[in-house]
Design a binder for these strands. Structure first.
Lengths: 221, 221
DNA sequence: GCGACACTTCGGCGGTCGCCGAACCGTCCC
DNA sequence: GGGACGGTTCGGCGACCGCCGAAGTGTCGC
């Protein structure tokens, strides 16, 4: 199911967590519309994706964060699939390596750096697994204004480990990861590059990282 | 790569963590020896498996626990692949559902029950992720005689979440999961059924579960 | 040395599946 | 209404790939 190059391309594109139309996906994968239609049917039937009809458009997105995590971990195991060729592609992939969204949280050098800084300050506890500490929970509330009390419901974990396929190291996922990413976007600390999943750190964003996590943004290049 | 039915069968068989010979794998997958050879070459080349030549035998096993976790989570996302047909197959799958090893730790109803019991007693902290608590670390040392101090080295986490594809819930993996499974096998609390990955709880094992975790073995059927 | 055995390589067969062009159906906008 | 456009269905082409049989290589045991 995910072995087909076209479907794999679709899934990687969908990793940004947004809903794509059928023709957008057809274009990035370089296939015709009929081909894309067939693949999307299979992805939806298999439960990997959900669709939403709206007018003459068909919006498709990944079914849930678990599916996104599965695809990221697959990408981590098969780095060959992500090897780009040509100048245009390699600058795009460099941007992705610097910072990007992974479904609904931060990844790339940026995501790993934030995770490391949070670990260093005792916000994430890695000694015996991968958990948000009490201190981390307080930090989320105080510094980011996140209502962590609402997290008790539902079965999605507060903190989750996600293997970064460019850095080959772990970054923060789960509710906390999603909250950090949402807050960063909302505050204008990061901004999407074009309509891709690559993100760029803004000036205020660099200041915020320095202030909140004592993180030197220059080290992120 | 993992989409091929034959290779998928190989991988599921290899999930027990042991090394299999080429002909054993060919037999369980129902293919000829030449076919198996070709598939094994590709699995080894892709880094999913490692091989060890020994005399005229070729022993193959999964490369590492991360790979095993990846395959288990794939199995969790595509339950159709595990649907058995026929009496023989369905009794075998019932045994697997009761209890089995998942690479090097416990899975199935047994694995989930142990994990739940450990969570209930505060040995595993699930509030903010999935981590072994200090209390859990002490318990491993006192009750199982595990030297948790040696865990600080290496990058494999002490506790890790692993999605159980029969129970559709999480069970304990990572160093702690491996230690529990090893200790249970060593003490004769569980025993392998034939040469499969299914395990059976023994009489002393039921007593131990009752004593250590206040877990009623009868509830596991 | 000589069989038995585990595994490998080669060649060729066959089915599956991804792909597209052409034609069709619905929605949007003028 | 009519054109433009997104999406869909159908049919057929072509390539890829998994599969096996036959023959070959190395190892083990008598």
């Amino acid at each position: 199911m995910l072995a087909d190059p076209t479907r794999a391309t679709f899934c990687v594109a969908l990793l940004d967590g947004r809903a794509w139309t059928a023709s957008e996906l057809a274009r990035v994968a370089g296939v015709s519309a009929p081909t894309a239609t067939g693949h999307l049917h299979r992805l939806v039937d298999s439960g990997l994706c959900t669709e939403r009809r709206q007018g003459r458009h068909r919006y498709v997105q990944l079914a849930d964060p678990e599916t996104a995590a599965l695809i990221e971990s697959l990408a981590g195991h098969f780095p060959a699939a992500a090897a780009p060729t040509g100048l245009r592609a390699s600058t795009a992939s460099a941007a992705l390596a610097r910072g990007r969204t992974c479904y609904d949280h931060l990844a790339g050098r940026l995501g790993v750096a934030v995770t490391d800084a949070m670990t260093g300050r005792g916000l994430i506890d890695r000694d015996a697994g991968f958990a948000l500490s009490d201190k981390g929970r307080d930090w989320m509330t105080a510094e980011l204004g996140v209502d962590t009390a609402a997290w008790s419901t539902g079965r999605r974990p507060a903190a989750k480990e996600c293997l970064d396929w460019t850095e080959r190291r772990s970054h923060l996922a789960g509710l906390a990861g999603a909250a950090v990413c949402a807050r960063f976007l909302e505050a204008g600390w990061i901004r999407r590059i074009g309509s891709t999943r690559a993100v760029r750190l803004t000036g205020p964003g660099a200041e915020a990282l320095e202030r909140l996590l004592d993180l030197d943004a220059a080290a992120l290049e």
